[in-house]
Amino acid sequence: MAHLLMIEDHPHNLELMTYLLRAAGHEVTAAVTAELGLKAARECRPDLIVLDIQLPDATGFEVLDLLRLDPELHDVRVVAVTANAMVGDRDHALSAGFDGYLAKPIEPATFTRAIDSFLPSELRGHEPTPSWAGD
């Protein structure tokens, strides 16, 4: 189980990913702007950040740069999630320094497994289960 930070401005996307990751046993903090996201990152030092490329106040690339410049955060794993999914986007993201890249629409049955692949084994969650009550 890990502490994940989601930086995503679209409420449905945020709800979907947060729901699935909590059902997989992770703790999830959410932020809806780049500024709030960076603040949350500094405060809670997540194990992994899931970052939307298109945010209202910055691009995911800009956020990534700021994270990498911060001495306390520059090692944090960052996965890009984007609805753009044009040819070359994946390569562009990976060469910019993202640890991973996921395209929207996400695949609900395998999303949490995909996120887990970026975590060290001791932090991974389980398959999403309904035992989590949700609210």
Partner: peptide, 28 residues
């Protein structure tokens, strides 16, 4: 084209996503 791609995919995220979570039985 990039905006179209983005705009069209975003609602589908919710559609495919939440039908998925429902079919996975997560809310019940």
């Amino acid at each position: 084209l990039a905006s179209m791609s983005h705009e069209l995919r975003t609602p589908l995220n919710a559609i495919i996503g939440f039908t998925g979570t429902l079919l996975m039985g997560l809310p019940g």
